[in-house]
């Protein structure tokens, strides 16, 4: 069972502690997505798993093996880099086959695997091309192909879609989900894109400043963020965070309300506010309203909401869906 386990793993570069005693448990076959703000140590975590960096402390296990001291190749992982890292002087076929040549596989087996991966990834006609002659999406697929042909126990992806344009990103995201379904291999996927995290993940790991803040299914994180950081990080538009008297009314230091749990009420409401901006997205309308007690709040209203900036409105909040946090930023039950 190639579970992936990290136990109290720490890593520092010079005086900078990049990972602070991180523990993680990723179950076999899971699609685990690591999210977090830039510089929080996501890539470093992935590189530790891959064996490209050495952990300063702690254990890294893949399956039943402690892999701390194993070379990348011996860990049976495959990594897809944000920059794709294709060998520029080799064509698509050789890019995929190059690593296999050193694994002692039969020539015919190598060819079979490459052809199969090329077919899966729709690279059939492009095998003779050099990376410079490929589009961004094709390079991306070649990089994924190079990982697939190794038939690894674990796939590691470091922001593989961040260099693609929006439309292609959605497509490739769907392809990746399909790939995970058909291969069933454990995947660890780093991104700072919420939508990718929410849509792809079986489980999301939220990191901040070298620590794991919370892990859980996308909906768990969305519905029950364990602390302020996760509350603010997961969900778009962001959760409204209210402090001061308005929060104390609910017995909390900070009160969190998702935009969809606020409604613009015709008459009675909890707060009075002035609309400052309205964004029409078609299906939804985001209304930005300044409330005297609560500051600027975002309200997610229906597609045909017709409030205008400058209007005075009443805001009503769904009391069953509020999130309360204590002074330390931890969720209160």
């Amino acid at each position: 069972m190639p579970d992936v386990r990290l136990h109290n793993v720490s890593k520092s570069f010079g005086t900078e502690d990049v990972l602070k005693s991180v523990s993680l448990d990723i179950v076999d076959g899971e699609f685990a997505v690591i999210v977090g703000p830039s510089g929080c140590g996501k890539s470093t975590l992935l590189r530790l798993l891959a064996g490209l960096e050495q952990a300063d402390a702690g254990d890294i296990e893949i399956g039943d093996r402690r892999v701390n001291d194993l070379a990348p190749a011996a860990r049976r992982i495959a990594m897809v880099f944000q920059s794709y890292a294709l060998y520029p002087h080799m064509n698509v076929y050789r890019n995929m086959a190059f690593g296999l040549k050193f694994s002692g596989l039969e020539h015919s087996e190598i060819e079979r695997r490459v052809r199969k991966a090329a077919e899966t990834l729709k690279l059939d006609g492009l095998l003779e091309r050099k990376p410079a002659e490929l589009s961004g999406g094709q390079r991306q697929r070649t990089a994924i192909g190079r990982a697939i042909v190794r038939e690894p126990d674990v796939f590691l992806f470091d922001e593989p879609l961040s260099n693609l344009d929006a439309a292609l990103r959605v497509n490739t995201r769907l392809e990746l989900a399909g790939l995970h379904r058909s291969l069933g291999t454990t995947m660890v996927y780093v991104t700072h894109d919420q939508v990718e995290a929410m849509t792809l993940a079986d489980r999301i790991i939220v990191m901040n400043e070298g620590r794991v803040e919370q892990t859980g299914t996308p909906l768990e994180l969305y519905r029950e963020p364990q602390n302020l950081f996760v509350a603010g990080f997961i969900g778009a538009p962001r959760m409204n965070l209210v402090t001061g008297a308005a929060a104390q009314e609910f017995g909390a230091e900070t009160l969190g309300i998702r935009p969809e749990h606020l409604t613009i009420a015709p008459r009675a409401g909890d707060w009075t506010a002035t609309v400052s901006m309205v964004e029409h997205l078609g299906s939804d309308t985001y209304v930005y309203a300044d409330a005297a007690e609560a500051g600027t709040l975002i309200v997610r209203a229906g597609g045909n909401t017709s409030v205008e900036p400058g209007a005075a409105v009443k805001l009503k909040l769904d009391r069953s869906a509020i999130h309360r946090f204590d002074a330390g930023g931890t969720r209160m039950t």
């Binding site: 990348p72 190749a73 992982i77 890292a85 060998y87 050193f102």
Partner: peptide
């Protein structure tokens, strides 16, 4: 690029190669 060498290492390519 560092990634190129790292990619090769993940691919199981030895340092000499």
């Amino acid at each position: 690029p560092k990634d190129l060498k790292d990619a090769a290492r993940c691919d199981g390519v030895g340092e000499v190669h």
